[in-house]
Design a protein around this nucleic acid. Structure first.
Lengths: 358, 358
DNA sequence: AAAGGCTGTCGAAGCGCTTCGACACCTATG
DNA sequence: CATAGGTGTCGAAGCGCTTCGACAGCCTTT
């Protein structure tokens, strides 16, 4: 193993000079620098991470705590994790992968041991028990997600409230008056992860303003669960013509079941999804959707963390503005709602004249 | 920040005694140990990771290199990563997350800097350029996947050759004589990731033995790609009654298109998938499938790495035996193949008398 | 021509831990 | 009763790096 001292000797300078060449914290003459760099290359020198961490008390590592759950859409998490890793690397940081399994202990361990310089927490719950620890730690941290009390925290998330509002606005604009929300699994709501509730809040309050009726049903993924949920929806609100889906594993079953019931998308029923673009594009009907900007979230989280590490405080709450992309799953509401027997009219309705946004 | 020395002072012993209490490398009297442990608890002491790494030249960190690709089924990778992280934790190790983006440089950096004690590489290509580096490094490593040349490497993977054979055996046993394989995206084959080819090899050679005809078509995920692929399959082999799918994002489209064409599953056409159980169970028809044991792979990889770290060499190639679970998507081949127009017979065929396994 | 300010380099002091040899004390053994 | 062999504890020497203060040499400025 090659050490700093060996490089120094090889280049005919002192160890500290090599160190300063590496860190750039003091000016070094061009000739010396080149000689040192040459030696580094020839010897294949890599600074020892442990020694560096000990001497500088900075590890150049960011800890990323990912949830263990499998009841949420995994590719989104993966995409965030990858974005965090790649962004961190471009700034000279590595990423330590922790799972939520350890709970608050992970925060204590990492901050206590100096293993990492900073932390990113995903899947933060509304009243997360790790937050108090994070507040009293002197390490910078960023949450992906929004807890109930954001005091002293930096958070990055999609603006789910605006997302909900956006979905309902789009449907209202198309003349839909009765919409159903197919939500995440009940466990997600019970866990108070926040984002699902925020979507619903935004959706409901905008719906009230626009005079749209909303029926919300949490739903496990898969065909069986959705069959039951969908039957209940049409039972309770036979006039439902619009759907908002916030559960990727319910998207395809919903489309299939609607088709099977003879309800055409988008002629009879419109569907808006909150999901990654890939899902929206690969579905059997290209879905009008609000994308979850996973990459952007990961990238932004790292960037904010770095500005905090540099001592420059940064804005506290970053809510990314949602963007709704219109594809083939939404259209004007049918002229008359389907009859009680659940057989929708086949004819397309004319575009509603009422525009909610003047 | 609490240090070893402070703990020692608080407990009235020397620093080395505290260190030995922590590591257990020398015997310490029960009373002293308890006193030290008490002090550790009271002061909230956490050993400094950098200092520890420097002094012991072991970081207690395992590097995990995950692929950047998005053309493979992401949840499997995520599941492996999580299994690696949790298994590592139970053995006192943390996991450093690297992406394939850095390429071979990542191996050099990690082994050179002592950042990690060992590495796990996922998504290894048949002729991966990181392998030579890994061989000459003195760090233990485990590959998840199987390169062409496994000399000096420890590998963990599902036995995909056996998986392919198992799928074709199951279909042959049910009397199917003409089967189609819907494979991964063409890019996966071009990249020579190995597993797709191995599945195909196992499948083809067993098919030859059993007198089954095989048509293989790589396929991107999604409806559009599959529509084209499926049309070609039935065009070329109208008598196809069995499908093997090794591409999770083709599963649902395949089922939907078959349904749409009036081919009933499993009465007219049988489908076997190679996919995680969750996908098999959540599909619109509960799929007969060979599961990808992601968790097991992650766990085994870490365990083998640890035995190598302890100096106890361990077996080199671990191929997990595939298990085929029969669900609702496979049944006896129809008595006669569908006619050329692609309209299958509705009647169920009697179970084939010929049993390929005496 | 002397004083002051730069620039570039060096030496040395740690950072907090592990680990080796030393040693004091205690118990079995001849 | 002296000796050998355990135990349990300590002191000190690093591990490889960063960083601070010092200072030599040079260029300005007065």
């Amino acid at each position: 193993m090659v050490t700093l001292a060996e490089v120094a000797q090889h280049a005919g300078v002192s160890a500290s000079t090599v160190s300063y060449v590496l860190s750039g914290k003091r000016s070094i003459s061009a000739t010396t620098r080149q000689r040192v760099e040459q030696s580094i290359r020839e010897l294949g020198y890599h600074p020892n991470a442990g020694a560096r961490a000990l001497a500088s008390s900075r590890s150049n590592i960011i800890a990323l705590v990912i949830p263990l759950r499998t009841d949420m859409y995994v590719p989104v998490m993966m995409e965030i994790a990858i974005a965090v890793a790649t962004t961190a690397r471009t700034h000279g940081y590595d990423v330590l992968l922790l799972t939520g399994e350890e709970g608050p202990e992970a925060v204590r361990r990492v901050t206590g041991s100096g293993l990492a310089d900073a932390m990113i927490l995903m899947d933060v719950e509304l009243d997360d028990e790790r937050l108090p620890l994070l507040r009293q730690a002197d390490q910078p941290s960023v949450l992906i997600g929004l807890p109930a009390d954001t005091t002293g925290m930096t958070c990055v998330d999609l603006d789910f409230t605006a997302t909900g509002a956006l979905c309902v606005e789009h449907l209202a604009e198309l003349g839909h008056r009765d919409i159903a929300v197919i939500g995440e699994a009940p466990a997600v709501y019970e866990r108070h992860t926040g984002f699902a509730e925020r979507t619903l809040d935004g959706l409901r309050s905008r719906a009230r303003e626009l005079g749209v009726r909303v029926l919300h049903r949490p739903c496990e993924g898969g065909y069986d669960a959705l069959t039951v949920t969908l039957a209940r929806v049409f039972d309770e609100r036979p006039g439902t013509t619009g759907f908002v889906v916030q559960n990727e594993s319910a998207v395809e079953p919903l489309l299939a079941l609607l088709r099977q019931q003879g309800r055409a998308v988008p002629e009879d029923v419109s569907v808006v999804a909150v999901c990654p673009d890939q899902v929206a594009v690969q579905a059997s009907v290209r879905l009008t959707s609000v994308a979850i900007p996973a990459q952007e979230m990961g990238r932004r989280a790292v960037e904010h963390l770095l500005t905090k590490l540099e001592g420059r405080g940064s804005e506290d709450i970053v809510l990314l503005a949602p963007e709704l992309v219109v594809r083939a799953s939404t259209g004007p509401a049918p002229a008359a709602p389907p009859d009680a027997a659940g057989r929708p009219h086949a004819a397309r309705a004319p575009r509603s004249a009422r525009r909610p946004h003047p």
